[in-house]
Write a protein that binds this DNA or RNA. Structure first.
Lengths: 346, 346
DNA sequence: ATCCTTAACGTAAACGTTTTCGTGTTAGTA
DNA sequence: TACTAACACGAAAACGTTTACGTTAAGGAT
């Protein structure tokens, strides 16, 4: 087992100084061609590669981006990571991942671990617990220490950093309008509790769409599911709540659900009740994941372009990292949603 | 914006040496209680945290694990990452991710980037292109430089490293036996080309199961899909191939598919042909993802326990990283599969 | 013969830690 | 009073780089 070779070892072997080796390898013309060739040959022979850690220490930058997300087994977040990774790699950055598991404490711990030199900047989406507790000190501290943050999807406006969001309001509005124009008369929404900003916005879009068409929104048709239900163990409870919704409002002919799982479950319940999709009931979901695409019938859905979100976030962060001037300005980029029509609507 | 505070700055402020500060913070009894308290108070006030990079350089270990996988938008791989992250974090390790995108070149580049000091060891699953080219020099070089590797799922035996695999052969055998015992007389398999080891093994399990019950395997019933089809753009081609399979063999009453997508697509095709599931056709998939759980009908499947795989891989790696003795022995841990019965079988 | 330039290399500092090995002061002992 | 031990701290090296600056020797110009 040959250990990694360092400049020092090459220097000793060739009987020159470390500086000479370093310069030779970087093609400095301070060094004679002879020596340069000799050093390079030796370096190639022994597979010399500069030690990243030493470089990081010297340059005070690590060329790595920290990603902090609530969970990874999730189509949207994986897509975002894919987007980040792609542009990060292209620009010579690595990507290091922390999972908060929707827990405030894990979010804080992870941030502290990564913030101490391991990374140059953060791309993150806030955990539900943090949103609920509304304690954002760890973000503000990190920022005030000079480490840039880019937030995506779940954001909070009070934090002064770049943000990449999807236009949740307009996205859901588009979806509901689609249902209205498809002649749905009683449109229900299956959404989450309000403290998750995206849930709140999507609900708001639903209401605005109805208002725009002079339809009165009925609270009966708004089902706010306890968000713990996204953890898929609670699927039975979710199913039951939706079943209740349908039974109490048998005239529902359109459903807008703020995520894939809710939409799919709504379809399942509808089928149990013998409702034909899309003839008797039309369904639209949010998040274009694998479920929407492969469900039967396949699900019309509002795509968030997760990969794009990740890519833009990475670009914003790297731009900030590599700009000389200290730009205190914060940007918010809105990624447009897209309604992908499939079989669950007419 | 207050920059990160270092030992040196604390030392200067308090008019002591750097060494004293360091020792005080680590509770060395070389330092008087007075000074210790003073230093600690100051450190707390200014949120001192040791710089990870400097520590890494000094200790020659980074406390980070490199994960290298073909793609991340994939239920199984996300699950594995989740498992790795959980045990890694518990033991004070971070996790850094590289994506090969199934490309040999990106795999090599990513390995080289990470191997130069950024991480202490690898957990990886080999890209398809690498498996096809059978060029494993980058793995062997990394290992010979003293950096441990743990492979999972897609492995190759020639490489001397720890491995965590699922028992693909027995898993698929179990599935096919289930179909046989459920009175299926003509069982087809939808699988991939042979160079992906897991595909080969699953096919083999299918054949062994048939043989065990004295059923002759018919090549007509073995559909080897070009694996590029897992990229979901090719879904139409996939559908067509399966349709052909069904049309040419109308007596098929059981299907075993080596992944979720194939299974779901088989169900979709069956439905188009008016075959009732599970009455006329029973289907079993491999990989317990979100599709299997939420399909209608829900899919009986062979679960690989991805999270467990990740957890075991991380444990193996960390064990090797932290053991004093240099154990050249390599282990292979087999994670048992589990047949999860749902609605697509009787 | 002296000075200057330049080519070719070495020295040392710096990044932020930890740790070994001094070293000076004080107090206790003979 | 002189010596020793304990205490409290500092100096310096080390991890692996890069780079500003210093040094040496050769050669050309005067």
């Amino acid at each position: 087992m040959k250990k990694k070779v360092t400049l020092k070892q090459i220097a000793r072997e060739l009987d020159v100084s470390i500086a000479t080796v370093s310069k030779a390898l970087r093609n400095s013309k301070e060094i004679s061609e002879d020596t340069r060739d000799k050093v390079k040959a030796f370096a190639k022979l022994y597979h010399y590669r500069p030690n990243n850690i030493a470089l990081s220490l010297k340059n005070r930058k690590t060329k790595t981006i920290g990603i902090l997300i609530p969970e990874i087994v999730h189509h949207f977040f994986s897509k975002v990571i894919q987007g980040i990774e792609e542009v990060a790699n292209k620009k010579g950055y690595n990507v290091i991942i922390g999972l908060s598991n929707e827990s405030f404490d894990k979010e804080v711990i992870n941030m502290e671990m990564l913030a101490n030199g391991s990374i140059d900047g953060f791309i993150l989406s806030i955990s539900k617990e943090t949103l609920m507790q509304q304690d954002y000190h760890h973000f503000n501290e990190t920022i005030s220490q000079g480490m840039p943050i880019v937030m995506f999807d779940r954001i909070v406006n009070e934090i002064a950093c770049d943000k990449v969001i999807v236009d949740d309001l307009r996205g859901s509005k588009k979806a509901v309008i689609k249902l209205i124009e498809n002649k749905c008369k009683n449109i229900a929404i299956i959404t989450t509790k309000d403290y998750v900003s995206v849930g709140r916005l999507r609900t708001q879009g639903y209401i605005e769409a109805l208002n725009e068409y002079d339809i009165e929104s009925q609270s009966d048709l708004i089902l706010k599911v306890d968000d713990k239900l996204v953890s898929e163990d609670y699927i039975d409870v979710l199913e039951k709540e939706i079943m209740d919704l349908f039974l109490k409002n048998p005239n529902i002919d359109g459903v807008f659900a703020v995520n894939e799982l809710y939409a799919i479950t709504a379809m399942k319940v509808a089928r149990k009740l013998g409702k034909q999709i899309p003839e008797e009931l039309q369904v639209i979901g949010f998040t274009d994941g694998v479920l929407s695409r492969h469900a039967m019938p396949s699900l019309t859905t509002v795509s968030q372009h997760g990969k794009k979100i990740g890519a833009v976030a990475a670009e914003l962060l790297i731009e900030k990292l590599e700009s000389e001037v200290e730009d205190e300005q914060v940007k918010t980029v809105v990624i447009e949603t897209e309604l992908i029509e499939r079989e669950s609507t007419k």
